[in-house]
């Protein structure tokens, strides 16, 4: 089972656990509707698209409403700490959850006690909490953008708001230095997917692939384009694809979806998600041709 955990921006949305369905541009869980907007909703929607494409079961989600005060986030940490052993997911993806290092440590410790340790993936604030708590090597996958990569490379920063200025000024050319610093300081998991003008797939500190095409600069401006990559990776792994192959396919599909709809800075994430099935189909067709 793939379990995706995160908050949604509806203050009174209760802690909800279960299988999720995606239709139109909305998510459906336990008779509740969630609009597909930037954040965990976009991530879950992209995971659902991949699950449907690969004809596997849809992901399970653990969601709670939180507009920033941390109440929903704390409910998620608490539920995971108590129930992760019973749920025993194959893949645990943690996303928009208020970073609380002490609680993240407890969740990771509980996950490691599962009969089989889940593939641990962190993006967004869960990645901040994991890095700040010194847990990065115990995770399998992080999906930072370039500024978040600078945060991972900074040994002292506990949040990207405190990254060193010289690291923030890093450009694509400095990515190898950022990777080396993050690995040296034990702030990187086994697999890093660095999202940017050039996507870097990094395994055990070594760049194994770079994805440059198609080049769609507007994707950087569109809220949720990082979330869709993380969601696709998790669902592809759930479908049996290796983590590194999943990363390559997901980053390519995101770019291709942007190209299909001629993405502009004003494009909304639901439009990208709507184009993902066609993007995945095109990638698979191309791969079959190359075989």
């Amino acid at each position: 089972m793939l379990l995706i955990c995160g908050t949604i921006p509806i203050a009174n949305f209760p802690l909800t656990m279960g299988a999720v369905a995606f239709a139109g541009d909305e998510l459906f869980i336990n008779e509740q509707k969630i609009p597909c907007t930037q954040g965990t909703a976009a991530l879950v929607s992209a995971a659902c698209v991949v699950a449907d494409y690969c004809q596997i079961a849809p992901p399970h989600v653990l969601l709670a409403g939180d507009i920033g005060n941390g109440q929903g986030s704390r409910a998620i940490y608490d539920y995971l700490k108590k129930n992760i052993g019973r749920l025993s997911p194959n893949i645990l993806l943690m996303h928009y959850i208020l970073p609380v290092m002490g609680l993240m440590k407890k969740v990771v410790a509980a996950a490691e006690k599962c009969a089989e340790k889940p593939v641990l993936i962190a993006d967004a604030s869960s990645m901040y909490a994991a890095k700040a708590a010194g847990l990065a090597p115990r995770f399998d996958i992080f999906t930072p953008d370039l500024s978040e990569m600078a945060f991972l490379a900074d040994p002292d920063a506990v949040h990207p708001a405190y990254i060193s200025r010289h690291l923030f000024n890093s450009e694509i050319l400095q990515v190898p230095e950022l990777i080396a610093a993050a690995c040296q300081n034990k702030n990187a998991p086994r697999l890093l997917i660095i999202k940017g003008a050039v996507d870097h797939i990094v395994e055990d500190g070594r760049v194994i692939a770079t994805i440059r095409e198609p080049d769609i600069p507007a994707l950087e401006a569109i809220g949720g384009t990082g979330d869709t990559i993380s969601g696709m990776i998790s669902a592809l792994i759930d479908a049996g694809v290796t983590a590194s192959e999943a990363a390559i396919t997901a980053t390519k599909a995101n770019r291709l979806a942007g190209q299909i709809i001629s993405a502009k800075p004003a494009t909304k994430i639901r439009e990208i998600i709507a184009a993902l099935p066609m993007a995945l189909k095109n990638i698979l067709k191309k791969e079959k041709k190359n075989d």
Binding site: D66, Y96, M127, A266
Partner: peptide, 23 residues
């Protein structure tokens, strides 16, 4: 948008208030 001053998108970040601010 340069002409209208309308906010077209907000991206990046990871704390739970960001999706709310986005909306």
């Amino acid at each position: 948008d340069k002409k209208t001053g309308v906010i077209l998108n907000i991206s990046g970040g990871g704390c739970p208030d960001i999706p709310y601010l986005h909306i």
